[in-house]
Deep mutational scan, measured.
Amino acid sequence: TTYKLILNGKTLKGETTTEAVDAETAERVFKEYAKKNGVDGEWTYDDATKTFTVTE
């Protein structure tokens, strides 16, 4: 399944996708990605669109 991440950081904005077996796995991948890019904020997930959003 393809999951999407929307980054709404103070200095970094953008989108990325990952293939994962479930939302929990995708969330771990995306949180590591955000951490590596210095983005830390509020996380939300929309199951209907398989989209995570992190907003600083």
Rank of each mutant, 00 (worst) to 15 (best):
T1P: 14
T1M: 11
T2W: 14
T2H: 10
T2L: 10
T2F: 14
Y3S: 00
Y3N: 01
K4G: 04
K4H: 15
K4A: 05
K4M: 07
K4S: 08
L5T: 01
L5H: 00
I6Q: 05
L7W: 12
L7K: 02
L7F: 12
N8F: 09
N8W: 11
N8V: 11
G9V: 09
G9E: 03
G9W: 04
G9N: 04
K10G: 05
K10R: 12
K10F: 14
T11R: 12
T11Y: 13
T11L: 15
L12T: 14
K13Q: 13
G14C: 08
G14H: 09
G14F: 14
E15V: 12
E15A: 09
E15W: 13
E15N: 08
T16N: 05
T17A: 08
T18I: 14
T18D: 03
E19P: 05
A20T: 06
A20S: 07
A20V: 05
A20D: 03
A20Y: 02
V21N: 13
V21A: 13
V21F: 12
D22V: 03
A23C: 08
E24A: 12
T25P: 02
T25K: 06
A26E: 00
A26S: 02
A26Q: 00
E27F: 15
R28Q: 09
V29Q: 09
V29F: 15
F30S: 00
K31R: 14
E32C: 06
E32T: 09
E32D: 11
E32I: 08
E32G: 05
Y33E: 03
A34Y: 02
K35G: 07
K35T: 15
K36D: 09
K36P: 01
K36C: 08
K36V: 14
N37K: 14
G38P: 02
G38R: 09
G38M: 06
V39R: 03
V39F: 11
V39Y: 06
V39E: 02
D40I: 14
G41I: 01
G41E: 01
G41C: 02
E42K: 12
W43V: 02
W43H: 01
W43K: 00
T44G: 06
T44D: 12
T44P: 00
T44N: 12
D46V: 05
D46W: 04
D46M: 04
D47K: 08
D47Y: 08
D47I: 11
A48S: 13
A48C: 08
A48H: 10
T49M: 06
T49K: 07
T49P: 02
K50T: 04
K50E: 03
T51S: 06
F52C: 00
F52S: 01
T53Q: 06
T53Y: 11
T53A: 05
T53H: 07
V54K: 01
V54D: 01
T55K: 06
T55Y: 09
T55Q: 07
T55N: 10
T55F: 08
E56M: 07
E56K: 04
E56I: 09
E56F: 09
